[in-house]
Design a protein around this nucleic acid. Structure first.
Length: 218
DNA sequence: ATCCGGAGCG
DNA sequence: CGCTCTGGAT
């Protein structure tokens, strides 16, 4: 079967089973970017607590993050884990955002996607997944996000056998129409499947993708 | 290959 | 308790 047809079949089954995921839950693009950093290897529920703290003390702006003592930021984001690392990362990103774009989304959106992605990757604490999450969910660029779930699910389904981030990203982008809405929902649905069924130890019994073909389960 | 880390779950 | 969580830096 054609790769694109396969990908849409998966997408439709997931959407049918889980429904729209409404990503990214946030009041502002800056909140999305902060969340993208805080959620690295971390349960989203813990990130929500950290963001709630940042809102409570009213520091959810690049200016306030930079002004605040790092030790304070550590305390506020503690629920999201890796709090010392992430406090550094938030500061680095806030400084970058202010220095390069004056803290303005409009200015950031004007940058070409490719150069913007490279500039993001140069910021301490921002790797491929975080950069792509920011591009897709904060800036609405048609940029497919790859994560551990995407990799695991794709391999188990036999969609691809490579491991490299960029190869997987290109696999999806080359076999799907370049649409923001589609990329947004697709990644969110893969996360839903990865959390609920295609876990490190898979729960294949009631997997919504049963019947699509053979699944390797590693 | 190791480290960073609190929180929630069974 | 052990496992897992929308990774990235060293």
């Amino acid at each position: 079967m054609k790769q694109e047809a396969k990908l849409f079949k998966i997408y439709n089954k997931l959407l049918d089973y889980f429904g729209p995921q409404h990503w990214w839950p946030a009041d502002s693009p800056f909140e999305v970017m902060v969340g993208a950093i805080l959620t690295q290897s971390t349960n989203w529920g813990n990130v929500e607590k950290a963001i709630a703290n940042l809102k409570r003390v009213k520091v959810l702006t690049p200016e306030k993050i930079v002004e605040s003592r790092e030790q304070s930021v550590e305390r506020w984001i503690k629920p999201s884990g890796y709090f010392r690392q992430k406090a550094r990362k938030l500061r680095a990103f806030a400084k970058f955002f202010l220095r390069e774009y004056g803290g303005r989304l409009r200015a950031m959106r004007c940058e070409g996607v490719q150069t913007l992605r490279e500039k993001l990757l140069a910021v301490h604490g921002i790797g491929p997944e975080t950069a792509d999450s920011i591009l897709l969910y904060a800036l609405n660029k048609p940029n497919f996000v790859v994560d551990a779930y995407t990799r695991r699910i794709g391999q188990r389904l036999g969609l691809f056998d490579f491991e490299d981030y960029h190869q997987i990203k290109e696999y999806f982008e080359n076999n799907l129409p370049k649409r923001v809405r589609l990329y947004n929902e697709y990644h969110a649905l893969l996360v839903a499947l990865g959390k609920n069924f295609c876990r490190p130890r898979p729960l294949c019994q009631n997997c919504p993708l049963n019947g699509l073909g053979r699944c390797k389960k590693n």
